[in-house]
Simulated scan of single mutants.
Amino acid sequence: MKAAYYEGNKTFSVREGDIISPGPGEVRLDVAFCGICGTDTHIYHGAMDQRVSMPQTIGHEASATVAEVGEGVEGFAPGDPVVVRPLDNRLETPADRGHSHICEKLKFIGIDSPGAFQNSWTVPAFTLHKAPPGTDLKLAALCEPLAVACHDVNRGDLKPDELAVVLGGGPIGILVALVAQEAGARVILSEVNPFRIEFARKLGLEAVNPTEVDLEAFCREKSGGSGADIVFEVSGSKAASSTMTNLLAIRGRIVVVAIYPQPIEINLFHFFWKELNMIGARVYEPKDYEKALRLVAEKKLPLEALITDVKPLDDLPQAFQQLDENPNAMKVLIDCRATS
């Protein structure tokens, strides 16, 4: 088999590796496609060197087919198309209250343990979701970020015809907007990058630039004067977080999707005055993966348009470099079956 190994200092080596036979409760996969996500680029830039054991194969947005099944595994057979929910909660304790996707000692596969940028990948069987027959494995590789979006929308308890504002038009922001729109919401996407604004509009989303449009006034106009029902903060921008409470109607909700490593200023007066709610949203639960798989299989969303490029595994180092040089890229997939 062949795998890409992160060596530190923006360096990957693609070389031969050992096939790991599945143990009890494990499944070996033939990886089809794996997407490069923001976390992977953080690793590439060295921001997670204290967490990643080098040299290590990373990557977690994977689609695959089952190659080999370990002892005691039921429900999967060689040839089955699958996606991987890369969360290892085997260290969960009663103190975690049964929320396995955010348990205190959660391990993220592809960061804390070897990931999917390889031909052959052995994972715990409980991480697998079987894709419907005939599912396009290239699109199925988008299930991980799509499941994030499904989880965000579910956490916000979004209802049909509500006015939803998505702050940030990167890959996750676009997916949140598409999932919210598919759920029946009226969606406004707020983004400052002109390319992303135009891209979102081509997908059928209403996108505006908050430096050119008074977003608060625009929300009131679209809501008959009350304001937005829900805001999804996906940008990680201090400017967005400082103004998001202004956009909301009485008893509106904020879903915090972006990761803020440092404390920021938020207008708490609006929380008191309008009785607002703020909701955290981290990764996903099994039901979010099942929803994402249904959306992929039913082809309800324009997911193909999000794939900027597909590169063979041998070209993974160049793919990371190109992403650094192209801020307009949405999703680059690595074809782990192909070599250059």
Score class of each variant (00 low, 15 high):
residue 13 S to L: 11
residue 21 S to D: 15
residue 28 R to Q: 11
residue 38 G to W: 06
residue 48 M to K: 09
residue 53 S to W: 06
residue 66 V to M: 12
residue 67 A to G: 07
residue 83 V to I: 13
residue 84 V to Q: 00
residue 84 V to M: 04
residue 86 P to N: 04
residue 87 L to Q: 12
residue 104 E to W: 10
residue 107 K to C: 10
residue 127 T to D: 01
residue 130 K to W: 06
residue 132 P to L: 01
residue 134 G to R: 15
residue 135 T to D: 04
residue 165 V to R: 01
residue 167 L to F: 03
residue 167 L to H: 04
residue 168 G to P: 04
residue 178 L to E: 09
residue 179 V to W: 01
residue 182 E to V: 07
residue 186 R to I: 01
residue 189 L to S: 05
residue 203 L to Y: 11
residue 206 E to R: 13
residue 219 C to L: 06
residue 220 R to F: 02
residue 221 E to S: 12
residue 224 G to F: 05
residue 226 S to Y: 10
residue 227 G to R: 04
residue 234 V to P: 00
residue 244 M to S: 07
residue 245 T to V: 11
residue 253 R to M: 07
residue 255 V to E: 07
residue 257 V to P: 00
residue 259 I to P: 06
residue 261 P to Q: 03
residue 263 P to W: 15
residue 263 P to N: 05
residue 271 F to C: 01
residue 276 L to R: 00
residue 279 I to F: 00
residue 281 A to T: 12
residue 287 K to V: 14
residue 293 L to T: 10
residue 302 P to G: 14
residue 304 E to M: 09
residue 304 E to K: 15
residue 305 A to L: 12
residue 307 I to D: 05
residue 311 K to V: 13
residue 311 K to N: 15
residue 315 D to K: 15
residue 317 P to A: 04
residue 321 Q to P: 01
residue 324 D to M: 06
residue 329 A to G: 09
residue 333 L to S: 03
residue 333 L to D: 01
residue 340 S to C: 12
